[in-house]
Structures are given as C-alpha cells and as structure tokens.
Design a protein around this nucleic acid. Sequence first.
DNA 1: TTGAAAGCGTTACCAG
DNA 2: CTGGTAACGCTTTCAA
Lengths: 330, 330
Amino acid sequence: MVTVHEVARVAGVSAATVSRFLNGTAKVSDEKRKAIESVIERLNYKPNVLAQNLKSGSTRTIGVLTQSLMSGYFADAMAGIDDALQGAGYAPLIVSGHWRAQEEAERMELLIARRVDGVVILSGRLKDSQILKLSNRVPIVAFGRQLEGKHAYGFSLDNYKAVCDAVEYLIMQGHRNIAFIAGPPDHEDAQARLKGYRDTLAKHKIQRNPRLIEAGDFLETGGLLAVERLLESGERFTAIFAGNDLTAYGARLALYRRGIRVPEDISIVGFDDLHSSMCTTPPLTTVRQPLFEVGRCLGQAILAMIRHEKPDIDLPQLSLEVRESVRRIG
Amino acid sequence: MVTVHEVARVAGVSAATVSRFLNGTAKVSDEKRKAIESVIERLNYKPNVLAQNLKSGSTRTIGVLTQSLMSGYFADAMAGIDDALQGAGYAPLIVSGHWRAQEEAERMELLIARRVDGVVILSGRLKDSQILKLSNRVPIVAFGRQLEGKHAYGFSLDNYKAVCDAVEYLIMQGHRNIAFIAGPPDHEDAQARLKGYRDTLAKHKIQRNPRLIEAGDFLETGGLLAVERLLESGERFTAIFAGNDLTAYGARLALYRRGIRVPEDISIVGFDDLHSSMCTTPPLTTVRQPLFEVGRCLGQAILAMIRHEKPDIDLPQLSLEVRESVRRIG
DNA sequence: TTGAAAGCGTTACCAG
DNA sequence: CTGGTAACGCTTTCAA
C-alpha cells in the first residue's frame, strides 16, 4: 500500500504538504500541487482510513440498533437512515437486538467499542434511563420514545391519535362492535394503540366489551389465533382492528379459512402499512407509518447531534390509508 | 480515554506487558497479572479499536453489498449473514447498490476504502469480470452467480431446476395453459426461470404459446399489469406462474379486481416464499428460497476466505412449498 | 518474563 | 507556503 510519505518522496515534497493538499487545510503552490496530483494519480494513492480514524478519533460510522433484520417495518426505516447518511459520507453499522434488552445492551457496547460517531436506536426494550446513561458515551437518537438529553434525542409518532382517528373512521362507517387484537403488553406503541381504541369507543358511548379485546403478538400467528378465539367466543363483531399489519394478515387468513368474507362480512383495519398491504385481497385499510421518512429524520438528527446542533426535525405524521378492507354498514 | 500506557503506569508495569496480558501473547507473572487486572477494572479500560485496526490492518468488519435495504428478499439473507458473523466477532457494514452497476461499483470502493476484511455481494448487476478484479483487493463472496477465483467465490441456487419442478407440478395438477410473468430480462435468475418454464412445457409436448408469456419487473405492479394484459388478450389459461412472489401478489390483486377466484378459477405459483406468502389469501404455493440459510453460508464462506481456507459449503436447496393457490383440474 | 523503542499512516503544530 | 516532528493508542520485535 502506498502512503503519504511515498507520495511525498516521489513528488519531492513533504508528507505534510501532501496532507494539506488532500484536505485543503492550507494553500499549496501551484507547482507542488500539480506534482502531487500527478503522483497520486500515477501511484493510485488512497489515504488509509484506519490511520485517519485513529488520528481523528472519528469513524464516520453511525451505529444502527434495530430489532430484526428481517422485518419490513425496520427495513424501511433503515433505508431512510441510509439515505440521510449517504451524502454526508457516513455509513451505517447495523446490529440487531432481537427485542431483548440484554442483547441490545451488548450490541450497544459493541457499537461504542467500535467507536461509531453516533447511534440510532429503532424501538427496543432498553429503558430510557439506560439510553440516557449510554448517551454520555455516544450521541444517541431513538425512535419510539420521547427523549431529550444533552446527547440524546428521541421521538415517536402519535400512535394514540392515529388509532383514535382510525376507530372513529370505523364508527363513521357504521361499526359499533369492533374487536381489537392487541400487541405485546410491554410494547409502548401497543399500549398507546389499545388506549386509543378504548378511549374512542368510550367517547362514542359504545359499551365496552372486554371480550372483544384479544391478545396478539404483532405477528401473523397472533392475529390468526386471536380471530379463532374471537370466532369461537360467539361474540358479535363486524370489524377488527388489528394491532399491526402482520396481525391483520393473520386475522384475514383466519377469516378466509372459515369462509368469512372481507369486507362484506367483517371489516379489517391494520397498522403500519407494510408494502404488501397494498396488494392483499382486499387491499388493506391501515394506518400508514412513514417509516422511510422517519429513518431520514433519524439520520439527519444524529448527524446534527454529532455536529453539536439541536436536531430540528419536523416529524412525518401517521395517517389513515383508506383502501378496501372496510365496508360501510347499517 | 484511558490508554495502555495509563494502565501500565498505574499498575507499575510496561505497556508491552499490559498488551501481552490482554492478548495472551506471552506469559505474564501472576503478580503483575493481578495488578493489571485490578487496574483495568478500576480504570474501566477498554482498548481503542481504532488503534488496533491501524496496527493490524484489519477491521473485523464485513462489507455487505445489497441491492435494496427495503426488500424482504435481501433482508432474510442479511439476517443470515449477520447470524454467521455474530459469533466470529465480525460486524456487517451494509451498503446498497439499488440495482445500478455504477452505484454498486462506487459502494464497493467505499467498502474497500473503509478496509473491510471481506465483502459479500448479494445479487446485483456487476459483471463477473469486475468482481474478479475487485477480489484482488478484498476477498469476495457473491450470491447469484457462479464464481471461483483465488479470492472470489460465488454460488447461486438452481432456479432453472426449481421452476421445472414447479411447472411439472402444475402440469401434474392438470394445467396445460400456463401463463408466465417474467422478471427483468437482464436478470440472471429471471432468465433461468423463464427457460425452466419453456423447457418443461416442451418436455411435456405442450404447444408453446408466446402470448402467454408476459413481461414483469419482479414487483407487484408488474404482476398486476401483466395479468390485465393477459386477461384482455382473451387468451385462455388456468394457471399463472409468477416470476417471483411480489409479482404473484400483483397478479392475485388483478384477478381479485375482476372477481376471478384463486384457485377455483385460476391457479397461481410464485417464487421466493416471502414471509407474507404464508398468509395471503389463499396462502401462496411458491418456490421456497432458503435465504436465511443462504446468508449463513455466505457469512461462513467469507469468513473462511479471510482465513485463507477454501469455503466448504453445502448449499441449501430450492423447494416447492405447496400451499393453497393451485387447484387440481381436468 | 519484562521493558524500551520502533512502527502502523495520518494530521497538526511549530518553525522558518 | 513549506518541512520537520510529534502524536493518535496499540502491538511487536529486540535485548536483557
């Protein structure tokens, strides 16, 4: 590998000058500039990033702590982060915590050990206090929690309000017996969504029926099982609010198995708007999460924090994507 | 930040000894070992990876060149790679080429500049010759192409055979008018799949009908449009072989729009077995790509190449996942 | 078994 | 404007 010294020697200048030329740190005479340029070209010199890193203490790398590499949900956000990092010359180092606080903590240590310049945390089970502590060692931006610290910043989208709107929509379409398939009880978003559901029914003076609320796990299986239980319970309902799209997929399949039509017999609403939700049969009415945009915001935010600026983000909003899985009744 | 020298000074030994203790490079007297251990503990010393990198020339990082961060297809493979890398102390640096050879080449330069120890290439449009050349600078393992070089290794799964089997299955179910929605013509897998389709029909003496072959783009839209054209053409067919699952989703939606039932009226087969294909209505019969396992193989392979061993992989196989989107007729 | 010292390749400071 | 030199923090000879 060719080094600055090599280039310097061949060009008949000092290493310092070559470095200055490379970084534009100071003026270099035209004559030497040309010499250096041609030598660099000829020797095909590329600075050694490792040495630069050591010197500068920075790696131009952003750690991304996600929960699952396989999930379409996180994938979109990662793409957004990548998009934001791209132009700034940063690259993402992606690790996954698999929804386990212990593992997330370990991954965070790994990222810090690798000297990433900042970390983006996508959801997860780390406690806010843990994140705040970690942020003394590396700037952190988190999605899925409100956070404001000297070196930490976090935001989430208003799941509660989005669900209120969606349930409202269902009610406007004439539905009053609306089942709800919840997400993991310890999941902040899942809680907000459940609350939105409950409050909106209450607001419309609809008698609450706890038997219409089923547990789910934010996965297809949970949705499928939940609907089976619902159906077996004999409880009456005309619509299902699924905790997220995967749940909705499972629910839809359970209905299909029984020959129950959507939306003719039962309506379904999801949450997330995964890509495939556009093409389910029928196309799923769901709350759209602008995850790519969220990712972009996260990327810009962490970049800002690294520059010691306050991240100044205008958050993308959740919105109901009306498609064809809800029928007007009554 | 505390350094080896700091630790050494406090423990009353030399930096060299601390380093030796840390790396087990040489014997260290019990006495000093204890002193060092306690000081490290007390000062909470962590070696600076950047300095280690510079010294060793290695970053314990594997570059992963994918095409889309958002695709479920690549996501599974990445999860597999991550899984393989995990235990070995390597972390993935993921970049995306967006299916554009130019961009892929740039990303490769980026990875090399960042001194990754190896690169895994997931599909893409780089030429084999380019990859071979690149592999002189960094070991490369590629998926989606046969490759064997001193520092390059590549494999793909037998798309051709898998499609033959799947079409054969369709024929066994009584289908003879089978439409095919192709992928991008310049995509190697797409070509193999189309050929498998053609050859199998020929093998069974089924009159080839070019109007049953429609162009697609491996995306939902392509599938949707293709089916609309198919339907408008008035051509008769009882089954559709979609180039991949996304195409199948689009195709299924187009059918749904016209009130055509699956599989009662028309059968569909896909390719990939994305997660959601398990939960479409009806669940999709499709060729399963064991992408997670593929990812693991890729990870193990690149690790082997870094250790200067021949990657010795037994490839996972494609297999037909029979579900409910195909009906027996005739 | 241990320590001193020489690098790894850059960049930044200090003279000139 | 330019060159010499030190320093980033670690590992690895080389001697002892």
